[in-house]
C-alpha cells in the first residue's frame, strides 16, 4: 500500500500549470479591483493603461484595435475570450489542464472547477460597471479560493502536490511584483505633503488588493512610509503573498522533490531559487527603490520565468516534442 507511485511528466506539468492559471485568475481580479479604486476623475484612462502595462499586454491590447478606456480594458480581461492573458482564457486553460488531470485530482476539485468555469463564461456586460465590478472581482477571487481550499482538503499529497504548489508560488510571486509595480505607472501630481498622503492612500489600495492591509498595520512602524509597504510585500517572512515567503516555499517544495521522491534535476532550479533569495535578502529596500523599483521587479520577474523554464526542462519536457502547440501556449509566462 505504501508503494511510491510514479508521476507522469505530463501530469506534473498539468498540475503546475493548472495552479498557475488559477493563481493568475485570482490576481487579475485583485488587480482589476485595485485599478478601479485608483481611478481618479478625469484620469481614468491612465490607471487602466497601467493595468495593461503591468501585465505587459500593450501589444495584445493594441491588436484589439480599441481605445484604452475603462470599459475596453475591463472587457479585455473579463469577457474577451480571445485574449490569452484574460480571465476567460486563463480559466479555460486551467480547466483543460484539470481535464487531463481528472484521473488524479479529486472529484470535488473537478466539480468546483466546472461550476466556476461555467459561471465565469456567463459574465454579463453590466457586471463590469460601477460597484458591480468589485463584487464580480470578489466572486472571482472566491472561486479560486474555493478551489484552493478544496485542493488543500482533498488532493493527495504525493509529488503532484509539490508541482502544483510550485506553479502556484511562482505565479503568486510574479503577480505580487506586478501589483507592486502598479505604483510605478501612476504618478501623483501636487506638492510633497499632498503627494505623500495620496501615495499612502494608493499603497493602502495595493495592500488591500493583496489582502495584506491589516497584516501590514500589525508589523508596520508608526509613521510608515511607502518604502515600508514595498519591504512588506517583498521581504516579509510571514505574509503569504510576499515574494520572499513564496520563494522560501518554492525551495521547500523543490527540496522535498529531491529528498523524498529522489528526483534528480532539481539542482539548477534550486540554484535559481537561491539566487532569487539572495537578490531579495541582500538588498535593503531603500537601495532597491533608489536603484529603481521597476527595474528591480522586472529582474525578479525574469528570474521567475527562468526558474519556471528550468523546472519545465528538468521534469516536463520529456513527455512530448517541444514543437507542439500546447507547450508553447503554456510556456508563456
Amino acid at each position: 500500500m505504501n508503494r511510491e507511485t510514479p508521476l507522469l511528466a505530463r501530469y506534473a506539468e498539468g498540475l503546475f500549470w493548472m495552479a498557475r492559471y488559477l493563481e493568475r485568475v485570482e490576481n487579475l481580479a485583485r488587480l482589476l479591483d485595485v485599478t478601479q479604486t485608483f481611478e481618479s476623475p478625469g484620469r481614468e484612462t491612465e490607471s487602466w493603461m497601467a493595468m495593461i502595462r503591468i501585465n505587459a499586454d500593450e501589444e495584445g491590447f493594441a491588436k484589439t484595435g480599441l481605445a484604452v478606456t475603462a470599459d475596453n480594458v475591463k472587457r479585455f480581461y473579463l469577457t474577451d475570450r480571445t485574449n490569452p492573458t484574460g480571465i476567460p482564457a486563463s480559466l479555460e486553460a486551467a480547466r483543460t489542464n484539470a481535464r487531463t488531470l481528472r484521473p488524479l485530482i479529486s472529484t470535488e476539485m473537478w466539480m468546483q472547477m466546472n461550476v466556476f468555469h461555467r459561471d465565469m463564461l456567463a459574465i454579463q456586460e453590466d457586471e463590469l460597471q460601477g460597484d458591480k465590478l468589485s463584487r464580480l472581482c470578489s466572486r472571482i477571487k472566491e472561486g479560486v479560493q474555493a478551489h484552493t481550499g478544496i485542493t488543500e482538503g482533498t488532493f493527495f499529497r504525493d509529488q503532484g502536490w509539490d508541482f502544483y504548489q510550485l506553479g502556484r508560488l511562482i505565479e503568486r510571486a510574479d503577480q505580487t511584483t506586478r501589483l507592486l509595480d502598479i505604483r510605478y505607472h501612476l504618478l501623483v501630481p501636487g506638492g510633497a505633503e499632498e503627494r505623500l498622503a495620496a501615495e499612502l492612500t494608493q499603497w493602502g489600495g495595493v495592500l488591500r488588493a493583496a489582502a495584506g492591509y491589516h497584516a501590514f498595520r500589525r508589523v508596520a512602524p508608526a509613521g510608515f512610509t511607502p518604502a515600508d509597504v514595498v519591504s512588506f510585500l517583498l521581504h516579509d517572512n510571514s505574509f503569504p503573498r510576499s515574494v520572499a515567503l513564496c520563494v522560501e516555499m518554492m525551495e521547500e517544495h523543490l527540496g522535498k522533490l529531491r529528498s523524498r521522491y529522489g528526483l534528480r534535476g532539481t539542482v539548477s532550479a534550486l540554484e535559481r531559487v537561491e539566487e532569487l533569495r539572495a537578490g531579495l535578502r541582500g538588498r535593503p529596500v531603500e537601495k532597491i527603490i533608489a536603484g529603481g523599483l521597476h527595474n528591480f521587479l522586472d529582474g525578479v520577474q525574469r528570474d521567475l520565468i527562468i526558474l519556471a523554464a528550468e523546472i519545465g526542462t528538468a521534469f516536463f519536457r520529456d513527455w512530448r516534442p517541444l514543437a507542439e502547440g500546447q507547450m508553447q501556449s503554456q510556456s508563456q509566462a
Partner: peptide
C-alpha cells in the same frame, strides 16, 4: 481511477529496445 492506474496518451509512452516505458518525472 477505478483501477488506480495512470491514464496515458500515446506521447506518454516510449519504446526502447522492444520494451514499453512511460515518461515520468523521475
Amino acid at each position: 481511477r477505478e483501477m488506480g492506474v495512470p491514464l496515458v496518451e500515446g506521447a506518454d509512452l516510449v519504446v526502447e529496445r522492444d520494451r514499453v516505458f512511460m515518461r515520468t518525472t523521475s
